[in-house]
Simulated assay, not measured.
Amino acid sequence: MLHRLALRVLPSLTLAVTEDSVRTRKRLVMFVPGLVAFAVYRAAKHGMSLAEPVTLLLLSGLVSLVTAICAYRVGRGVPFAQLVSADGARRIGWILAWIGFVYGVQLSLLVLALLWLVGYDYAKHPDGPAMMAMIIPSTAVARDAFEIGYVRWLEASGRPFVTFPDGAGLRALLARVTPALAGWVAAGVAGCVSLSLLLAALVSGDMAVLAQGAVVTMAAGTVGLLAFFAGQGNGAAWTAGLSSTRWNELVKFWWWPGLAFASTYYLVLVGGCLYVLKQPMSSPGLFAGVAGLVGGVMALYCYYLGHRRDIENRQPGGVPSALLRCPFVMGILGKSREAIAGTALSGSAAVFDKNSQRASS
């Protein structure tokens, strides 16, 4: 889900995919796959057993795979036959495998775990959860694949992006792991595992999953917030950036993506334990393992996002900080390009005008 974080945290990407014309097209792109997924569910219900978790996850992944490449093509604006030659087999394979299949399976596990928490257990009542576990992921995959395709279209049209949301920057960062990065990831893992083990000694039974989820989410979200600032300074002098940021802006980032994605990863892992590993969520060791993964992933991803944000800030012609309500771009969501950028983005006006004409045609 790193691509989703990048599309909403990095200003250059957020400005590109939240234009009014893009949102209008995106709604249609999301609506159609939902109908297709429902039709596939109805057909599959009579031809196979969707009460088996692996079967459901495989089917959901395949539907999401097809959805991803179709939505990417719409955003990219080129025929299917030209996708590989235009963007390369590696990127198209990434869209199919990661944005389509893997992301779709993750979202299905998220849906199943969330329904399990509210008492609608897929193992006992498979029909309703199975339907939602196919429809909801397909619409989310369509949204993200379309946005990625649109970013790629802008890039091919001459608008450069410092960061493309394909994880290449993260792989480059991991190729030269710094002590600061390793320290933050270790802090995320150790902190969440320690809190999980402590809580396991205090809370057990049916309330354990909720209590563990709340504590781990808050801990991982907090580590993610601090790691974001550490990434902007490559691990050095990050407290200065933290102290100079207003409290309401800190709370916004702590809430989203901090708490939102920490809880998402927690629920995905809970769903995997319940329906893939088929392990009840009752073991302190299992809780600790889930907590460690959530804390480590949030620290790693947020450090990376801070690092990429710092690179964007140092680029000539980048988005001026004065245009943003906060370092996390939360204030620009929902605003049109004209309302946000004004003359500050005049250098990119030709590309955006071309996009507006293309979107309205």
Score class of each variant (00 low, 15 high):
residue 2 L to I: 12
residue 7 L to Q: 12
residue 7 L to G: 05
residue 10 L to P: 13
residue 16 A to T: 05
residue 16 A to P: 13
residue 16 A to V: 02
residue 18 T to M: 05
residue 18 T to F: 07
residue 20 D to S: 15
residue 23 R to E: 14
residue 34 G to P: 12
residue 35 L to K: 09
residue 38 F to A: 12
residue 44 A to K: 11
residue 44 A to Y: 06
residue 48 M to H: 03
residue 51 A to K: 06
residue 59 L to G: 01
residue 63 V to W: 00
residue 65 L to W: 00
residue 67 T to A: 08
residue 67 T to S: 09
residue 69 I to S: 11
residue 69 I to W: 12
residue 69 I to A: 12
residue 79 P to L: 08
residue 81 A to L: 05
residue 85 S to A: 11
residue 89 A to K: 07
residue 90 R to D: 04
residue 91 R to C: 00
residue 99 I to L: 15
residue 99 I to M: 14
residue 102 V to D: 05
residue 102 V to P: 03
residue 106 Q to G: 07
residue 107 L to Y: 01
residue 109 L to I: 09
residue 113 A to I: 02
residue 114 L to C: 03
residue 116 W to I: 02
residue 120 Y to H: 14
residue 122 Y to G: 04
residue 126 P to C: 13
residue 129 P to G: 04
residue 131 M to I: 06
residue 131 M to L: 14
residue 134 M to P: 08
residue 138 S to M: 04
residue 139 T to M: 14
residue 141 V to A: 06
residue 143 R to E: 11
residue 149 G to E: 09
residue 151 V to L: 09
residue 153 W to Q: 09
residue 158 G to T: 07
residue 160 P to G: 07
residue 163 T to C: 05
residue 164 F to Q: 11
residue 164 F to H: 10
residue 165 P to K: 11
residue 166 D to S: 03
residue 169 G to S: 06
residue 170 L to D: 02
residue 173 L to G: 01
residue 175 A to Y: 06
residue 177 V to Q: 15
residue 178 T to P: 00
residue 179 P to E: 09
residue 181 L to E: 09
residue 182 A to H: 00
residue 184 W to I: 01
residue 186 A to N: 02
residue 191 G to Q: 08
residue 193 V to G: 12
residue 193 V to S: 14
residue 193 V to N: 10
residue 196 S to I: 11
residue 197 L to W: 01
residue 198 L to Q: 15
residue 199 L to Y: 08
residue 207 M to F: 04
residue 208 A to W: 01
residue 211 A to Q: 07
residue 226 L to W: 06
residue 235 G to W: 00
residue 239 T to I: 06
residue 244 S to V: 00
residue 247 W to H: 03
residue 247 W to Q: 01
residue 248 N to M: 03
residue 252 K to D: 08
residue 254 W to A: 05
residue 264 T to A: 10
residue 277 L to P: 00
residue 285 G to A: 10
residue 286 L to S: 06
residue 287 F to N: 10
residue 289 G to Q: 08
residue 290 V to H: 06
residue 293 L to K: 03
residue 294 V to S: 08
residue 296 G to T: 01
residue 299 A to N: 05
residue 299 A to L: 05
residue 300 L to C: 07
residue 307 H to S: 15
residue 309 R to D: 09
residue 311 I to R: 14
residue 314 R to K: 15
residue 322 A to T: 11
residue 322 A to Q: 12
residue 323 L to R: 11
residue 325 R to C: 03
residue 328 F to N: 04
residue 328 F to Q: 08
residue 330 M to Q: 10
residue 332 I to L: 15
residue 334 G to A: 06
residue 336 S to K: 03
residue 338 E to T: 03
residue 343 T to A: 14
residue 349 A to R: 13
residue 350 A to W: 12
residue 353 D to A: 11
residue 356 S to W: 04
residue 360 S to T: 11
residue 360 S to R: 15
